[in-house]
Amino acid sequence: MAQVLHGRGPVTATATTTRKRRPFLLDLYSTAVGKKYAMAITGIGLMGFVLFHMIGNLKMYFGASDLDHYAEFLKKLLYPLAPKGTVLWILRGGLIAMAVIHIHAAISLTRLNRTARPVRYQSERDYQVANFASRSMRWTGVTVFLFLVWHLLDLTFGVTNTVGADGEFIRANVYDNVVRSLDRWPVAAFYILANIALGIHLFHGVWSLFQSMGWNNPRFNKWRQAFATGFATVVVVGNVSFPIAVLAGVVGG
């Protein structure tokens, strides 16, 4: 509880404090506003990923061969200019880096914000506009991250998936793997829940990134929240349709 009063007695020369000079990106990243830029920019990258991932997966409605071919296509991006899989790995590397930065910034900002109010309010707060989405970002974020880990184990490494007809997990049989996985209702439920969390995360995050980057203009301000809502809805509806389709037998039935 110990607190130190500042600004007592003669106050001088605070404005002339100079910061330690650092390489440009690190310098930028060292401030809270800089970290918010990092979160916004990586957020945009990850938004692109979830959107295209969802669109790509819509192929499952055209049947197994379409989806499996799409997976193959991703591996062959820019092939034969680049060896098979290279471009995909570059993209994956980028995604991993973005996720790492996004998470690192989130953790350090959360820490900063905790220390900014070491003694909480001792009475109940009555929030006016901070909504569930904005206040649960770290929980929806964690949920999405855990889901991502499980999702990779499930459909990329097959660790948590069931074994296919030929007795082993074959990664290339994307369609089969998806159907086998989502046919288990607890898995489907987790999948749906995580995507709703993703939607809530996007609902605040997409709007928020405009503010963080300073993209604010009376001409488009009113579209920012609408865009965020629309984007979150499209991604969630698309993604949630997959387990429902599998359970309902529309896919894989």
Binding site: A32, V33, L109, L112, N113, A116, V129, A130, S134, Q211
Partner: peptide, 11 residues
């Protein structure tokens, strides 16, 4: 602390 765009300040 840092701004996470809750909007409570404006309210």
């Amino acid at each position: 602390g840092s701004c996470t765009n809750h909007g409570e300040c404006e309210a």
